[in-house]
Nucleic acid binder design. Structure first.
Length: 480
RNA sequence: GGCGGCGUACCCAAGUGGCAAGGGAGCAGUCUGCAAAACUGCCAUCCAGCGGUUCGAAUCCGCUCGCCGCCUCCA
């Protein structure tokens, strides 16, 4: 069965068939590196990470590029405020972004081009556009002429004439048409600048993506992704300039756009001051919880970050890893055998048909949690009847299923030790100190001095540390 | 004004023509010195409202109400 993807260009779900059979070329718009990345960036990166992983899982050979926009007004302004160079500022936030991605378990794309590393190609494409009459120079600036392409607006469903009447864009009198956008901007003193046939200057925003796509992937690519907000004008302009430059249509076969992350029903924005950085979220919640939260709804729907949403996800993650931990304790040898995929064919195909339908990760997560309940039930039954052999086999199948889901979700893929290790590293107290208090409490309990024992337990609870007594002794964990 | 989307239980959320996945919360039971945790069970005769199509609709069509995004930089 073919993979079906929702294509923003046609506004329909379509059967996915790459230009070259068996091979996929995909490009995703990365961050403009002038600040720490927020959970909106996380959503885009995680969504396309899953798509990338799933395409590979499905047998495609995938070339995946994600760029860094490292030259831009915001970068220049911020660098001036801080009194550092644009390069220095950009490098700092590229590094931070990479760290955040690693923490989130986002796989490194095959290519991570920078706009500043693609200047040669940008100039080349711009020259071609001028030569073809699709762009014009004005005092060292170069503009793309929107009027020349009759299908301008096909991605965003916009009509040029209506755009102009309702336009909020400042009209630059020099431009032939208010909608024309800059391919090359001449620089003011002190701004980063490169030599070009028109001026010492820098590229406009839209052209860099077209150039990087061509440079690293080719003139026609299969998938181009990004946030919904990029549809207009960014991706619309990319289409116009790329198709005008190469003469090849389409520039991109499938346009995929992820939905936004809202905070308490409000859009994240600087003016509201509700921008939530990835690293701040990861101070309170595990990367698995954040990923689960992001993948629990469809990638195109808006999602709402609330006080409870990450807590809910963390609780769910905890339940999953506690189950795996129990499996490991009761059936350790089931962890030593190879996965048996054909043994669980029905459940794997349940997952792949969900993924084939425009990457329905939420449904896959449902399958995994059904399996969690099932495994626990089986282990309960085995305990009651003493019949462990058949259950051992089932447990090994369950593990195979978890591993399989992990391959493309990038979730459910850690060991319980890793997961709880991350949780417990947030303890407000050194582990040795906690161990000491637990020992003290043990002794009190032996004396049946429950008052003293409870006081220790409550004291730890106030610091967010939960004690759990079991037959094997007392363990602790950080409260979610 | 133009374009697009959404409305499923207390909360989140999948399902888009055949008798409502999953997670969280809650309640009950098992366990426990008591807890916590864990596990199990229960928890939408119903899918914003009203009409229509159909043997059959949350799923298709129409209307109404409500919410949101884009049209300016933004993931």
């Amino acid at each position: 069965m073919p993979i079906k993807v929702y294509n923003s260009l046609t506004r329909k779900k379509e059967d996915f068939a790459p230009v070259e059979e068996g091979k996929v070329r995909m490009y995703v718009c990365g961050p403009t590196v002038y600040a720490l990345s927020h959970i909106g960036h996380a959503r885009s990166a995680v969504s396309f990470d899953v798509i990338y992983k799933y395409l590979k899982y499905s047998g495609y050979e995938v070339k995946y590029a994600r760029n860094y926009t490292d030259v831009d007004d915001k970068i220049i302004n911020r660098a001036n405020e801080e009194g550092v160079s644009s390069e220095e500022l950009a490098e700092r936030y590229i590094k931070a972004f990479d760290e955040d991605m690693e923490a989130l378990g986002v796989e490194v794309p095959n290519f991570r081009p920078k706009a500043t590393g693609t200047i040669k190609k940008i100039i080349e494409v711009t020259e071609t556009l001028i030569k073809k009459g699709a762009a014009y120079e004005l005092n060292g600036d170069v503009y793309y002429s929107v009027r020349l392409k009759k299908d301008y607006g096909k991605l965003s469903g916009k009509n040029i004439d209506e755009l102009e009447s309702g336009s909020r864009v400042d009209v630059d009198e020099r431009k032939k048409d208010p909608l024309d956008f800059a391919l090359w901007k001449s620089s003011k003193p002190g701004e980063p600048a490169w030599d070009s046939p028109w001026s010492k200057g820098r590229p406009g925003w839209h052209i860099e993506c077209s150039a990087m796509c061509m440079e690293w992937l080719g003139e026609t690519i299969d998938i181009h992704g990004g946030g919904k907000d990029l549809i207009f004008p960014h991706h619309e302009n990319e289409i116009a300039q790329s198709e005008a430059a190469t003469g090849k249509t389409p520039y991109v076969k499938y346009w995929l756009h992820n939905g936004f992350v809202n905070i308490e029903k409000e859009k994240m924005s600087k003016s509201i001051g509700n921008i939530l950085n990835i690293r701040d979220v990861l101070k309170d919640y595990t990367a698995d919880a954040l990923r689960l939260f992001l993948l629990s709804s469809h990638y195109r729907s808006p999602i709402d970050y609330t006080r409870d949403s990450l807590k809910d996800a963390e609780s769910a993650m905890e339940r999953y890893y506690k189950t795996v931990q129990r499996m490991k304790e009761e059936y350790p040898s089931a962890f030593e055998v190879e996965s048996c995929i054909h043994c669980i064919e029905d459940r794997v195909s349940e997952m792949t048909s969900a993924m084939d339908d425009d990457f329905n990760t939420a449904e896959v997560i449902g399958t995994v949690f059904k399996e969690v309940t099932r495994a626990n039930k089986l282990m309960d039954e085995a305990k009651a009847t003493g019949e462990k052999k058949g259950v051992w086999t089932e447990i090994s199948y369950t593990l195979s299923l978890f591993k399989e889901a992990g391959r493309f979700l990038g979730l459910f893929a850690r060991t319980p030790e890793e997961y709880f290790g991350e949780r417990n590293s947030r303890a407000a107290m050194p582990a040795e100190e906690i161990a000491g208090l637990i020992k003290e409490r043990e002794e009190a309990r032996k004396r049946k001095d429950f008052k003293a024992a409870d006081s220790i337990r409550n004291g730890l609870l106030e610091k967010g540390i939960v004690l759990e007594d079991s037959a094997k002794g007392t363990t602790w964990s950080v409260k979610g």
